[in-house]
Amino acid sequence: MSLSVEFIYETEFTLSEEEEGEIRSLLSFAFLEEGREVGELSILFCDDERIHELNRLYRNVDRPTDVLSFPLDEEELLGDVVVSIPQAKRQAEAYGHSFRRELYFLIVHGFYHLLGYDHDTPENERVMFTKQEEVLRKHGIVR
């Protein structure tokens, strides 16, 4: 099994090598659980202005958001996940859990979108969110 994850930083925020390894482990676990063997994705960390621009350009939604996913229709190239660091910090505070937990949740959420999951119906939401929480829980990342 081989999952390649590239981290791209457009903000002053950066992850440690240990944190990057932890995220790779989370995503590799989820990938393996899906029966997938080879894949590649990138994760872009940015500010509210950049994610707002991307949201407006690609989704026609004129506001910032927390995470965006850009899946590719290729077997091995999964796509890109974009995370707003300021929004993740605000949400962690609002939800009363750690920034780490919120950040990892957003990354895993975006990753499942790359794998084709969505939360457009109550049943799809239940399936996707159950998978996300299982991955986080198995890695000790709880609220």
Rank of each mutant, 00 (worst) to 15 (best):
M1Y: 04
T130S: 09
T121H: 00
V67Y: 11
A30F: 00
F7T: 07
R50D: 09
D80W: 08
L15M: 05
E49A: 15
I23Q: 07
E20W: 05
E34F: 00
K131E: 00
V38T: 10
I107Y: 03
L26N: 04
L32H: 06
E33G: 12
S42L: 04
V81G: 07
N60K: 15
A94I: 04
S25R: 12
V82F: 08
L27T: 06
F111T: 01
G110I: 10
E17M: 14
S69H: 04
T121A: 00
A88I: 13
Q91G: 14
G39A: 03
H113R: 05
L103W: 09
Y9C: 03
V38W: 11
R63H: 08
Y95C: 06
R100T: 13
P86T: 05
E34M: 01
E33V: 01
V5M: 06
M1S: 10
R137L: 09
D48A: 14
T130W: 06
P122H: 00
V81Q: 06
D47W: 03
D80R: 15
S25C: 12
R126C: 11
R90Q: 09
S84F: 00
D118V: 00
E102G: 03
R59M: 12
I85P: 08
E34I: 00
E123S: 14
Q132T: 12
D118K: 01
G116T: 00
L114Q: 00
E49V: 07
K131G: 00
E18Y: 13
D62M: 08
Q91D: 14
H119P: 12
L15P: 09
V135N: 01
L27K: 08
I51E: 05
Y95M: 05
K89W: 04
V142Q: 07
F45C: 02
D73R: 15
G21I: 05
L32Q: 10
N124Q: 06
T121G: 02
L15E: 07
Y58N: 12
L103Q: 07
K89S: 08
E40Y: 08
Y58L: 13
R101G: 09
E37Y: 06
F129G: 01
L115D: 01
E133T: 07
S28F: 04
Y104V: 07
R56D: 13
T14A: 08
E19W: 09
E34K: 05
Y104F: 12
G96T: 05
H139N: 08
Y9I: 02
F129K: 12
S84N: 13
